[in-house]
């Protein structure tokens, strides 16, 4: 997830929060003013609806979070304004009910046995993932060395530029040292300079994070777009 996307998600999440809250309060005020329904009752219904919508769109995080936080806000506002008016026995029942649910969760889902099982499972998963990565990458990061520090050590003094020949697309070349270093590293690690479509996709994120551009922002965008295109379409590159 890059910074631009994170910022957009944050902005849209906040917009959904703001507009959903405004909508809730406007509806509640309207129905209360026109004596259609109680103000707090309406807010409670809207909070439940928002929570359900949040659950339904859980895959779209900004929308989901916007609705969840909105539901939180409404419920907490409702409680702060009404809890004092409830008789003590009602509060006892509500809190007692919440405690029963929490104890069930603690006993059934949060025991140390579950913890141990999770630990074993995650350790096994990590091991398996590591094995798979090593196999797929031909041990590309087997020494666990950070790609940044590997790239720093690569000497590209004899290389002037790198020319990429993406399949089905126009070739492009760059003199950008960081891209040349990535190309040299890729050639050394894989022992080849020709790749099938998507063969380098799993490593694109690592390349992207390790890429320290020295060009202007416009040129960096062009280089990254071209490099991304090459990773997707496959092809070969030549160091000149």
């Amino acid at each position: 997830m890059n910074n631009k996307n994170t910022m957009l998600k944050l902005i849209f999440g906040l917009m959904i929060l703001a507009f959903s809250l405004a909508l809730a309060y406007f509806i509640a005020a309207y129905v209360d003013d026109n004596k259609i329904f109680d103000f707090w009752g309406t807010l409670l219904i809207i909070a439940v609806v928002y929570a359900i919508v949040g659950l339904l769109v859980i895959n779209i995080i900004p929308i989901s979070l916007g609705f969840f936080f909105s539901a939180d806000w409404l419920i907490i506002n409702l409680l702060f304004n009404n809890l004092g008016d409830w008789p003590d026995y009602v509060k006892t029942l509500v809190v007692g009910g919440a405690l029963i649910v929490l104890y069930f969760i603690a006993l059934l889902k949060l025991s140390d046995d579950e913890d141990d099982a999770l630990y074993k499972e995650s350790a096994a998963d990590e091991e398996e993932e590591e094995e798979e990565t090593k196999e797929e990458a031909g041990d590309i990061f087997a020494d666990n060395e950070d790609l940044n520090s590997i790239l720093k050590k690569i000497d590209v003094s004899g290389v002037e530029k790198v020319i990429f020949y993406p399949q089905g697309n126009e070739p492009f070349s760059t003199t950008e040292e960081a891209i040349i270093k990535i190309a040299v590293f890729t050639e050394q690690k894989f022992g080849k300079s020709e790749f099938a479509p998507g063969e380098l996709s799993d490593y694109y994120d690592e390349f992207y994070s390790a890429y320290k551009p020295t060009l202007s922002a416009d040129k960096v965008k062009v280089v990254l777009d071209k490099f991304s295109e090459f990773v997707k379409s496959g092809g070969n590159f030549k160091l000149v």
Partner: peptide
């Protein structure tokens, strides 16, 4: 997504 639930629990406790 767990944060809204944390906020709700904390809110409930403080409301109480």
């Amino acid at each position: 997504l767990i944060w809204p639930f944390i906020l709700l629990t904390a809110g409930l406790v403080f409301a109480a």
